[in-house]
């Protein structure tokens, strides 16, 4: 009986959301008086022994180049084999793109109950009850897992990473890796941008900005904050900004520490994508914009005047000339 955290990586480097899952998994192990270990599939440029800092004693690795591409079917079989081999009974994933591809498959393979989108440690005082977001962040459900083996996928940005001293032992496992049926024929990555779902701060623009030519003030503010940029649905639909920046009910759901909404009225469908943000700032010239009701801080004012000032003030705070 132990906890196994499945590590996700991009370009050979471990993702921030996986470090959150590691800290979370180590804390679950403490609750259950057991040990936590990490599992890395494929090759990795990061020094895996440093994962010990997040509370795992061991890092299992299946070193096989083919695992550097994601085929959910292959991943599920390998993860299920490792689970049985090392005797794990609680699996932790991050609820990111990889987790959404793989976690449920693994659960079905192992006949394990799964809770996706978990946002807190399980309550183990009476069963194994995991809190998750439902109704697109408008509510929570407390879900009990009845099966012996359990799978949790943790919402990114919902558990704080804690790094201490410590070094993990790396153990290479021999597991048969099936041939992938999914062939990766191309990857298009926007380089130099902070991925939206990993971003701590997001600056988002709506129709109030009047046109794509005015996005400079959004980009400037995002740049000084080290933030990702996003947009509302009408902006994405009008192709002012690329589709992948659209946050909301039918776009991407995010939960950054800080969400700055500029010129977005705050329709309920937009809120569904951002209401898990810890702090929401709304800048809108319409004092009646519904978004102000969901905001922590607000400025009623013209974005074209407010934003350059905000960027300048943040530069001052950060000591950027």
């Amino acid at each position: 009986m132990s906890v196994l955290i499945i590590i996700d990586k991009a370009d050979g480097q471990i993702k921030k959301s996986s470090l959150e899952a590691l800290t979370y998994g180590a804390d679950v192990a403490k609750q259950l008086n057991t040990t936590a270990a990490a599992l890395v599939l494929g090759t990795c440029t990061d020094d895996l022994s440093t994962l010990g800092k997040y509370g795992v004693g061991k890092v299992y690795q299946v070193v096989e180049d083919s695992l550097n591409n994601l085929d959910a079917q292959v991943y599920a079989q390998v993860i299920a084999s490792v689970t049985n081999q090392v005797g794990a009974n609680v699996l932790i994933f991050s609820h990111n793109q990889t987790g959404k591809s793989v976690a449920a498959r693994v659960a079905a393979n192992l006949k394990a109950g799964i809770v996706t989108g978990a946002c807190a440690l399980p309550d183990v005082s009476n069963g194994f009850v995991v809190k998750k977001t439902v109704f697109s962040g408008k509510a929570f459900a407390n879900v009990n897992i009845n099966s012996a083996c359990k799978v949790i996928s943790l919402n990114p940005n919902s558990y704080k990473t804690v790094a201490t001293e410590g070094s993990a032992i790396i153990e290479t496992l021999n597991v048969s890796v099936p041939t992938a049926k999914v062939k990766v024929t191309g990857i298009n990555k926007v380089s130099g941008e902070v991925p939206l779902t990993e971003a701590e701060i997001v600056v988002s623009g709506g129709r109030g900005l009047k046109g794509p030519e005015n996005w400079g003030i959004i980009l400037d503010l995002a740049h000084v904050l080290g933030a990702a940029t996003a947009c509302s649905r009408p902006v994405g639909d009008a192709h002012w900004r690329p589709h992948h920046e659209h946050v909301g009910q039918t776009g991407i759901q995010i939960a950054p520490n800080l969400y700055i909404a500029v010129g977005i009225s705050g329709a309920i469908q937009h809120l569904a994508g951002v209401n898990r943000s810890k702090v929401i700032v709304v800048i809108n010239k319409d004092a009646e914009a519904p978004f102000f009701k969901a905001a922590d801080y607000g400025i009623v004012g013209d974005a074209f005047e407010v934003l350059p000032k905000l960027t300048a003030e943040i530069k001052k705070l950060k000591g950027i000339a």
Binding site: I114, F140, V143, N144, N146, A295, V306
Partner: peptide, 27 residues
């Protein structure tokens, strides 16, 4: 393999703190 024990609503927001547009430094 799972069952919902109960649901919760998120804690209500404390309400928006409005900052004057001429006082961005305060924000």
């Amino acid at each position: 393999l799972t069952n919902v024990v109960n649901y919760e609503m998120p804690p209500a927001k404390a309400g928006v703190k409005l900052v004057d547009a001429d006082n961005v430094a305060e924000l």
